[in-house]
């Protein structure tokens, strides 16, 4: 009968009108993102400021968007003097984290870093050879997992 579909539609919306709302109410109640969620790049470091990074440059070379800039210590090539992340360019693809042989890189689930100044989007994970406050503090300096065996050659 004509009008049946119209009444059915009204019943659907009428039921929903009286039902519960589905909003997250964001600024009042923050969403907890799952641990795998890739938001901002961070690094594992010990409490005394020693980062797990051994400056192998895998992440810098693998990054599609030149987000990562690493400066190696000229005397000890296995030590990074600075590790800067330009998150304004980052596409959050996770290639750096996946390829990191020491599992030093990790992602935080902190998503509230909107800014009016593009310059502040670049942050350091290692400055002057020590890990900065942007790092995630872990207890051990040894990698959590053994380095993956799948490593191949790097891009020349």
């Amino acid at each position: 009968m004509f009008g049946q579909g119209l009444l059915k539609g009204l019943s659907v919306t009428g039921r929903r009108m009286l039902g519960k709302t589905e909003c997250d109410m964001y600024p009042y109640r923050k969403r907890v993102l799952p641990p795998k969620s890739r938001i901002f790049l961070s690094m594992r470091a010990t409490p005394d400021g020693k980062a797990l990074c051994n400056a192998c440059l895998t992440c810098q070379q693998g990054c599609p968007d030149n987000v990562i800039r690493i400066e190696q210590d000229p005397e000890d090539r296995k030590r990074a003097v600075s590790f800067r992340v330009n998150s304004g360019r980052c596409t959050f693809c996770g290639i750096c984290e996946e390829n990191c042989p020491r599992h030093a890189l990790t992602f935080t689930q902190d998503f509230e870093r909107a800014t009016f100044d593009k310059g502040t989007l670049t942050y350091a994970l290692i400055a002057d050879g020590t890990a900065t406050g942007a790092c995630v503090i872990v207890e051990r300096t040894e990698p959590e997992h053994p380095a993956s065996a799948e490593g191949g050659e790097d891009v020349g």
Partner: peptide, 24 residues
Amino acid sequence: YAFIPRERIFDFFEATTGSRLMPN
């Protein structure tokens, strides 16, 4: 209405692949 189930499936994507929209 359509975004409610869509978001639910995206929650699954985020929890398993790390990203809602650009999973890589």
